[in-house]
Simulated assay, not measured.
Amino acid sequence: MALALIKRALVADIAFEAIMADCFYGDHRELVATLRRRRLPFVLSHRGSVGRSWAPEDMAHSIKEALEEVRPRDWHQVTRHFRTGHTERWWAIELSFLSYGSNKPVRAICATTDRRTLPELSTWYLTTNLPLEVASLEEVVRLYGLRH
């Protein structure tokens, strides 16, 4: 269904910054592969525990595992803006593991309201193919927040 909607938007020449999708679609390997192959910009959510690739046992296999190696001071404060004018302080971090990284084709990012407890309802495990020069951590959080 998502691919059909994307095709219709492209045919209709609808301008967009990036395709946003929740973890149902973000964890859908065929959709992700198609977006990457077509070089369509995306910000996708994932279940943090889903592994993406083979790696040695002592390396992180998922976003949640990569977060285990992060120190609280490594997080960056970002401001999340809402349509109502309300703002919230969130925390975000760029992760480097497996084939993810700020200088790689796909970036892995975690954004949360609490960097110490990572509350389930307000923690996002994201990937994006938007380069760092185009989308800072705060911009990725902003874009994904538009999904709602």
Rank of each mutant, 00 (worst) to 15 (best):
S53K: 11
S53N: 14
S53P: 06
W54S: 14
W54R: 10
W54H: 10
W54G: 09
A55L: 07
A55M: 13
A55Y: 06
A55W: 07
P56I: 12
P56W: 13
P56D: 13
P56H: 08
P56F: 13
E57P: 14
E57C: 07
E57D: 10
D58E: 11
D58M: 15
M59T: 05
M59F: 09
M59N: 09
A60T: 02
H61Y: 15
H61E: 14
H61D: 08
S62T: 03
I63C: 01
I63D: 01
K64Y: 05
K64V: 14
K64L: 10
A66M: 03
L67D: 00
E68H: 04
E69Q: 15
V70W: 01
R71D: 11
P72E: 15
P72T: 08
D74F: 00
D74W: 02
W75N: 04
W75R: 05
Q77A: 06
Q77S: 10
Q77E: 13
Q77H: 13
Q77N: 08
R80C: 07
R80M: 05
H81V: 04
H81S: 03
F82P: 03
F82I: 06
F82V: 05
F82W: 03
F82C: 12
F82T: 03
R83Q: 13
R83S: 03
G85C: 07
G85Q: 08
T87V: 13
T87F: 02
E88Y: 00
E88H: 03
E88T: 01
E88N: 02
R89D: 14
W90C: 06
I93G: 12
I93H: 11
I93C: 07
E94M: 05
S96Y: 03
S96L: 02
L98M: 11
L98W: 11
L98A: 07
S99C: 04
Y100F: 09
S102P: 13
S102M: 15
S102Q: 14
N103F: 14
N103C: 06
N103S: 05
N103R: 10
N103M: 14
K104E: 09
K104Y: 15
K104M: 04
P105T: 14
P105N: 11
V106K: 06
V106W: 11
R107E: 02
R107W: 04
R107L: 12
A108Q: 07
A108V: 07
I109G: 00
I109S: 00
I109K: 00
I109E: 00
I109P: 01
C110W: 04
A111E: 15
A111S: 15
A111P: 03
T112K: 01
T113L: 13
D114K: 04
D114W: 03
R115L: 03
R116K: 12
T117L: 01
T117H: 05
L118K: 09
